[in-house]
Amino acid sequence: MTVALVTMSHSPLLGYADPPAEVNAAVQGAFSTARAFVEEYDPTLVVSFAPDHYNGFFYDLMPPFCIGYEALGVGDYGTAEGPLDVPAGRAGELAQWVAERDIDVAVSRRMEVDHGAVQPLEILFGGIDRVPTIPVFVNGVARPFVTMRRVRRLGEAIGGYLASLEDERVLVIGSGGLSHDPPVPQWATADDAARALLLNGRHPTAAARDARQQRVIDTAKAFAAGTATIRDLNPAWDTALMAVFASGDLSPVDAMTPEQMAEDAGNSAHEVRTWVAAFAALGAAGPYDVTYSFYRPIREYIAGFGVMTARTAG
């Protein structure tokens, strides 16, 4: 059997920001290439590694990893709201397989997912319920973080399960990163109102969600104009990490620490954990070849923006 992969940056600012026409055309071209890759592969099952941005997971109970048996899009930034098509039986098998390989993973029978998980499904498939999808949450915003080695081992365990599915064509998605430092509150420096959001900000009013989203949009405009105080993008860091993924040897990521990642690439660079898990899953299913790679640092999206596709050789 074969396993295929798409890793891609997401941005809540798609549709809200206005990058130069050439940049927008390049991004849309990358999305088109990824869509064509997926259409040709025609997956029967998707495993989606994605973070959350305090829309579904909060500090009242923040796991490092969680497998969803059911999932609902929350509809932030104009993304789809409602249920994903989650095959609960497969999700349960996956969770048991991972647990038996000494990876502690939470499960959710009502996972709520935001644009981090929804946006790739909309871009690649045109909707969130077109292909059976098992969502795997990977914490990329809330300290403390597990080691990158642990993330890699999660991916390897999941890849071992996927390799056993002779009757499926599995697409692995990794959504997040690369270097970026959007205005997501940090518990250590947050005021009381922000801490209330981080602790349990589920199901905000429309006005509260709009105000939160507008802060991000305003920051993006300031960042593009060179007046924002957030950390800059780091194209060298981004492309070096993408080269590691393309090499097939993920062992260098084990040495990456949360402190250095934030210093080099911003507080939300931790979202690259989804890419690590996705490529580790692909590698566990067999040797792979990267078939496409795209990268642009895009200030209007507050993101080092990357897209990669790959598949095993089997």
Rank of each mutant, 00 (worst) to 15 (best):
I134R: 08
G75R: 09
E81A: 15
T79Q: 11
I158D: 03
P87Y: 07
R152W: 08
W97R: 00
S164F: 00
D181Y: 03
S179W: 03
S175K: 02
R202P: 00
T189D: 10
D181E: 09
D76S: 13
G160W: 08
R209T: 10
A207G: 02
L162T: 09
T147N: 10
S175D: 02
A206F: 13
G75K: 08
Q96L: 14
Y77S: 14
W97M: 00
G155C: 09
G176W: 04
G75E: 11
I128M: 05
R152I: 06
V74N: 04
V113Q: 00
R153Q: 14
G68R: 03
P63V: 06
P120Y: 05
R152M: 13
L162N: 05
I173H: 04
A99F: 05
I158R: 00
A157V: 06
F137Y: 13
C66G: 05
A117H: 07
G176H: 02
R101L: 03
S164M: 10
R149D: 13
L165P: 01
V172R: 11
P120R: 00
P63D: 03
A95G: 07
M148K: 10
G176I: 05
F145S: 04
G177F: 10
A142F: 04
Q119W: 14
M148H: 14
L94D: 13
Q186K: 12
W187I: 01
E100W: 07
A106I: 02
A163F: 12
T133F: 11
E93H: 10
Q119C: 07
A206S: 12
V105D: 00
M148T: 10
R110W: 14
R195K: 11
M111R: 01
G201V: 03
D129N: 11
E156R: 12
S175T: 00
G155V: 06
R169W: 09
Y69S: 13
L165Y: 02
T79A: 02
A95P: 04
D181A: 05
L124I: 10
L198S: 01
D129W: 02
L124Y: 08
E168Q: 15
A99G: 08
I123Y: 04
A193S: 13
D167V: 05
G174C: 08
T205A: 01
A163M: 11
D114M: 09
R149C: 05
P204C: 04
D76T: 13
S175L: 04
N139D: 15
V172N: 12
L72K: 11
D85F: 14
D191M: 11
L198K: 00
T79I: 01
A106R: 08
T189I: 00
G116W: 01
R109A: 15
G201N: 04
W187G: 04
D104R: 04
S108V: 11
V74G: 00
E166G: 15
T205W: 03
Q186G: 09
V172M: 12
P183G: 13
T79K: 02
T133M: 07
C66W: 03
G126W: 05
Y77H: 15
P204Q: 06
N139F: 12
V146D: 12
V107P: 06
E112V: 03
G82V: 01
R195Y: 11
D85Y: 14
T205H: 00
R90G: 06
R90P: 10
G89I: 05
F137W: 06
G116R: 02
F125N: 14
A71Q: 08
A88T: 15
A80N: 06
D181L: 10
L165G: 01
V151C: 03
